[in-house]
Write a protein that binds this DNA or RNA. Structure first.
Lengths: 225, 225
DNA sequence: CCAAAAGTGTTCCGTCTACACCCATGG
DNA sequence: CCATGGGTGTAGACGGAACACTTTTGG
């Protein structure tokens, strides 16, 4: 094979994953203490180096699969980070991806295996490299998109109550939402479907369980909430 | 220096620039026929390979400076593109940046030197690699941001009429806007300042010239238009 | 004098917001 | 029986959309 670009520099390329979960009232991020040098022991996102035969998406997917055991999840590129000295180990270009998962689906033994912790956004520690900026950008992206894309459901179980869904919105946006207005808007879309099941875990009288209307919103379309 | 990441693969990293201009009624992109193999002769964005001592931003800036002769311009990352076979020459990870320039400021001899053409969005030809996708994503980003960030001014001269400004919005959004409503909203912000100059180039009776209120909107803040 | 673009307000309608009470149930 | 969270409707404010005519002046 002809080598066209030989005269140019090559770089390490990595993917860093911002994994968001929801603890019932707040957004959480999965972070761990770095287990390699440099920066061993600093709080860090989980990432991996790009390999020759995989796309950026593939790399993010592979990283997230090993990390969570989950194969299908919401995943989206946040952006590329390329400051010269962003990584103290060597020059690394990193592409940040954010993922949303339902904490209940998450295999906690994997969390322990990798030494990871769920940390709520308001308690984020100082972090390795530019990982804090990555998280910040990911949150901003989430906020912009939550009202127009059906992504909140990725943070919830298959069945959820409307109150839980509202809590997700409040956690992402960082501000309270009026219950009646929220439900009114929901009803105007057909984005959630009522089931005949009732959840008794959080209320004496029980709350209706809903599910996301997957058929109509498969490919991340635009919604209006 | 200790080499921490030696066991990992390295990649060529490039920056591709989507340069938008405005011809008075439509958005245009600066593209050229590729002057190197592979893909020689195909329509392509202008890009450059990342060098060891520069950040992604720096690389985009360097590329745009050599291309346009302009040193300060609106520039923003669109995203990273990393499909395995996206570039027929070799594996290249490319970060797309979009820039907005005022065509009048542009040194046309540079355009000819690099063999570039202004092409309106509705006449985009087939393009090299994934450059069409990059342009598409850049346009979508522009549309999302135009009402909340003061970026339209980058496509116009220092002094402009309100009609010109409206045409920029219409070109970006791809749909007509009501003149009176547009001006009413503009007035509610203090984003433009009227000058006492009159433009006679497009009208018998002349139109007031305005300028962007730079002092208040220096660091790309949020506006509401 | 006429063609062409600039400039200017009002009304209506729909949307968003604020707001409070009853219900059902498990303990 | 009572504490807790679930569920529901309305009125008023606000913002966005639709809409047409007058003015200016260069040719």
């Amino acid at each position: 094979m002809v080598k066209y670009y030989q005269q140019h520099d090559k770089f390490y390329v990595s993917v860093d994953c911002i994994v968001f979960g929801f603890d019932g009232s707040q957004l959480e991020v999965l972070i761990g203490k770095r287990q390699m040098d440099p920066g061993r022991g600093e709080w860090s996102l989980y990432g991996g180096f790009l390999e020759a035969n995989e796309s950026l998406q593939d790399c993010a997917h592979r990283t997230l699969l090993s990390l969570t055991g989950l194969d299908e999840m919401y995943m989206r590129q946040v952006g590329a980070f390329g400051e010269v000295d962003r990584d103290p180990g060597d020059r690394v270009i990193s592409i940040a991806y954010c993922a949303l998962i339902n904490v209940k689906d998450y295999d906690d033994s994997l969390r322990e295996k990798y030494g990871l912790e769920w940390v709520t956004l308001d308690k984020l520690p100082e972090m390795y490299s530019d990982h804090r900026l990555m998280i910040h950008n990911a949150v901003m992206q989430l906020r912009r998109r939550i009202y127009t894309r059906p992504l909140s459901f990725n943070l919830l179980p298959e069945l959820f109550t409307l109150t839980q869904l509202q809590h997700v919105f409040e956690a992402v946006l960082g501000e309270p939402i009026d219950k009646r207005n929220f439900r009114k808007r929901l009803k105007q879309t057909d984005i959630v479907v009522q089931t005949d099941l009732i959840d008794h875990s959080s209320s004496r009288s029980g709350a209706m369980l809903y599910r996301f209307n997957k058929e109509k919103y498969g490919e991340e379309p635009t919604i209006k909430l």
